[in-house]
């Protein structure tokens, strides 16, 4: 826990105290993210994360009736060959522009950190594609490495140098408004559905 309080990410190195601590952080993150209206899905490996993406896109009807999804550049995306992605994820568009993002039903982006206390996703979104894919489509799938969950947003902010990051984005739950009679309504300008896929960076041995 100390490492987390200091703001350093918890690196998962197989079994041991770190796994336990990491498990606690994921639990906290999940509770807070769900309280903010996000869904949280666990994946035991990058492959499982891709499987989760495929399942969720299918559930949303992507690949049918011309429904598309965009996936902004990120480390998980680059682990897989584009042909494999095209095969597994029908309707996926890898080029994120304002046109493709505005037309897409789902956007997939990869976040740098998660903040457990509030269930917040944190990302260097200086590249426009990250912002387009996470804001324009009605469904947003957010990928987050399990070992990149830190205690809170304050810890996460300290991991960025603003001089090297033109647009630092914190996202917590879907887009919301309560501007009409204070009735909470989801998905006003941004996504109405946010699913966070928390994945282990390598196949997990812990049981």
């Amino acid at each position: 826990m100390e490492a987390a309080q200091d703001g350093a990410p918890l690196f998962h190195k197989g079994a041991g105290l770190n796994t336990l601590v990491s498990g606690l952080m994921i639990g906290k993150f999940r509770t807070a993210a769900e309280a903010a209206g996000a869904e949280v899905v666990d994946a035991r490996s990058p492959g499982a994360a891709l499987g989760a993406v495929a399942r969720l896109l299918k559930e949303e009807g992507v690949g049918q009736d011309g429904r598309t999804a965009v996936w902004a550049d990120g480390p998980l995306r680059s682990m897989f060959h584009p042909e494999l992605l095209a095969q597994m994820l029908p309707g996926l568009v890898l080029e994120v522009t304002r046109e493709t993002a505005a037309a897409a039903h789902a956007g997939i982006t990869e976040f740098d950190y998660g903040a457990a206390a509030t269930g917040t996703l944190v990302q260097d979104a200086s590249a426009a594609g990250q912002r387009l894919a996470s804001t324009l489509p009605p469904v947003h799938l957010a990928l987050l490495r399990a070992d990149r969950i830190v205690a809170d947003t304050a810890s996460a902010l300290r991991l960025f140098d603003p001089a090297r990051c033109a647009f630092l984005a914190l996202v917590t739950g879907p887009s919301r408004t309560a501007d009409i009679e204070r009735v909470l309504t989801i998905g006003v300008h941004g996504p109405r559905r946010l699913v966070v896929i928390v994945y282990e960076p390598e196949a997990s041995h812990a049981r």
């Binding site: 807070a32 309280a35 903010a36 522009t97 304002r98 206390a117 509030t118 917040t120 979104a125 200086s126 590249a127 426009a128 912002r131 387009l132 947003t153 304050a154 902010l157 603003p162 001089a163 990051c165 033109a166 647009f167 630092l168 984005a169 914190l170 996202v171 917590t172 739950g173 879907p174 887009s175 919301r176 309560a178 941004g190």
Partner: peptide, 27 residues
Amino acid sequence: AALPRSATAQQITSYVSILTGPAEAAD
């Protein structure tokens, strides 16, 4: 920490954007 809690009783708002200089434009 205080603004969302005091304003709308939220732990944090859905979006917090920190802009330092111009970022990449949409096109």
